[in-house]
Nucleic acid binder design. Sequence first.
DNA 1: ACAAATATATCAGTAAGAGATATATCTGTA
DNA 2: TACAGATATATCTCTTACTGATATATTTGT
Lengths: 121, 121
Amino acid sequence: MSSAADPLPENVSRLVPLTPAVFYVLLALSSGARHGYAIMQETTSLSEGGFTMGPATLYSTIQRLVELDLVVETRADRGADSRRRYYELSGTGFRLLDAEVKRMNSVFKRAARLVQRRSEG
Amino acid sequence: MSSAADPLPENVSRLVPLTPAVFYVLLALSSGARHGYAIMQETTSLSEGGFTMGPATLYSTIQRLVELDLVVETRADRGADSRRRYYELSGTGFRLLDAEVKRMNSVFKRAARLVQRRSEG
DNA sequence: ACAAATATATCAGTAAGAGATATATCTGTA
DNA sequence: TACAGATATATCTCTTACTGATATATTTGT
């Protein structure tokens, strides 16, 4: 079994810093399984319109994440719409997202200090 | 004259979210003028080794930022080393960095909440 | 004088994202 | 029951930004 403290494999950790597309797909899935189109909408919502993904970016990103085993397609039949394909985070996927969020926090703190200093003139 | 509250031109604001290379170049320059090589070292330092730029990324990024007028080459005080070319942030460059930092903060807050929730199981 | 570090530059290759378009299915409604 | 519009996935091609490699010149230390 794997723990939240396990180090990420090199081919995963080198994705940090995550691209916006990867980050938002993982983030959208962090609150539970979703299908592609819902991930797209969740991304627009989570970013308050500051980042939008077209279908090309969305589906190619999902495919890549599945190949890396960061995201898993769930077979669980949920809901009426037969077109939908549901995805969820793998343990590794979650740990990657967690690592990115921690990184963002430390970068933000440093950056905010620098930028604030200059704002004051 | 331009104020910190002026909206960014569309060809600038669409750079948000910034790529890591652009972000770190702007951030390194936020505390004052620097030459290319120093930006490279500052980036490694600011990111605690989490992000490193090779010369190809560095100089092509600087060139792009100069063309966009986000960064300006300064003629002033080259110091001892005649090879060095110094750059500084333009007002627009600073406002872009500021916008990115604000965005990071709001994204981080949302993300941390979601990720924390799942961590707790 | 020599080696190592500093500093900029550029080429060729790759990976990821964007715009466009296609197609199928589902939902509401007239 | 026909139709319009929204939902949903898929994929093609092009562009952009990054990467690894290599080159070259200058400066610094010994």
